[in-house]
């Protein structure tokens, strides 16, 4: 009798609407938190704009870009690096979200999330989606400013077609950040990890220079760039901005997102992950 009642209650669980409420709550909290940290928004914009207006202007005459897909003609260097800078915003935003997870863990807020009765994978995916949504706002703010410097897609549809690419890149990079956050014990250590991840990922990619250029000077570096999932996130965004699909990049970004996400979920699982083996979660 007792067993039947227990089984019935277990089956009741939560419905779709309850899951949606939980998801909305997590996104709402991240948005609210972001709203309270307006300087984060400003710094997220200043960084790519400095690259665009200073770095790109300086290197325009030094770094030539030949006609490569998705471009149908020669493009200015500013135009070439714009997708890389969009990806850069997503990368920094993802790492910032992960940093806030480590902070939450140190401050104890993370416990509140982890003792929710919803499955942990769902909670982590919701948190990732919230982070990707925040990155999306930053990217569109950057594009709005860049528009006045004639950085725009061939047609307004490009603004729409780039959206899923940014979201997927955000989830892939966010999942990587989440995985890193599970491996890091203290906030101070995470700053070091970020330096070891962000800069090599960004510079060893096609964000600032096309891969054929890298290959000319160092085939090994070009090979490393090819292995770097961030390179493919950049290319996915670049093609999507030009209303085209880079299937190779899409496949690699999707696969990397799944692998990083699965690893992050395992890492945050109390029975299998890294977290419970240490004191003071």
């Amino acid at each position: 009798m007792r067993g039947a009642a227990t089984a019935a209650a277990r089956r009741r669980g939560y419905g779709f609407v309850s899951y949606a409420r939980c998801f909305n709550g997590i996104v709402w909290r991240e948005t609210l938190r972001y709203w309270h940290q307006r300087e984060r928004f400003v710094s997220a914009l200043v960084r790519p704009l400095v690259w665009l207006f200073i770095f790109a202007a300086g290197f325009r005459s030094v770094l030539g870009v030949s006609i490569i897909p998705p471009y149908d003609t020669y493009v200015l260097y500013e135009v070439y690096i714009a997708p890389g800078l969009m990806a850069m915003i997503v990368l920094f935003s993802a790492m910032q979200s992960s940093l806030s997870m480590v902070y939450d863990r140190e401050m104890g807020n993370m416990r509140l999330l982890l003792i929710s009765p919803f499955p942990r994978w769902f909670l982590l995916i919701s948190k990732l989606a919230a982070g990707a949504a925040v990155a999306l706002v930053q990217v569109y703010a950057f594009l709005a400013i860049a528009y006045f410097w004639e950085i725009e897609p061939p047609s307004p549809w490009g603004y729409l077609t780039v959206l899923p690419a940014i979201l997927l890149a955000g989830i892939m990079l966010g999942a990587l950040g989440m995985l890193l956050s599970s491996l890091v014990r203290q906030l101070e250590n995470f700053a070091g990890i970020m330096n070891f991840v962000i800069f090599p990922m960004f510079f060893a990619s096609s964000a600032l220079y096309p891969l054929w250029r890298v290959k000319e000077s160092s085939p090994w570096l070009a090979f490393i760039c090819e292995l770097n999932p961030f390179t493919h996130a950049v290319e996915l965004i670049r093609f999507a901005f030009y209303e085209r699909t880079n299937l190779g990049a899409l496949t690699i970004v999707l696969a990397a997102a799944i692998v990083f996400l699965a690893a992050a979920i395992v890492a945050y699982d109390p029975s299998r992950g890294m977290l419970p083996r240490r004191e003071g979660l």
């Binding site: 939980c22 609210l32 309270h36 509140l112 919803f118 909670l123």
Partner: peptide, 16 residues
């Protein structure tokens, strides 16, 4: 950074 009632609302969402 959240108000008391916002903290409670967040918790409520985590319980559906």
């Amino acid at each position: 950074d959240l108000t008391v009632v916002q903290n409670l609302s967040y918790h409520a969402a985590l319980h559906g």
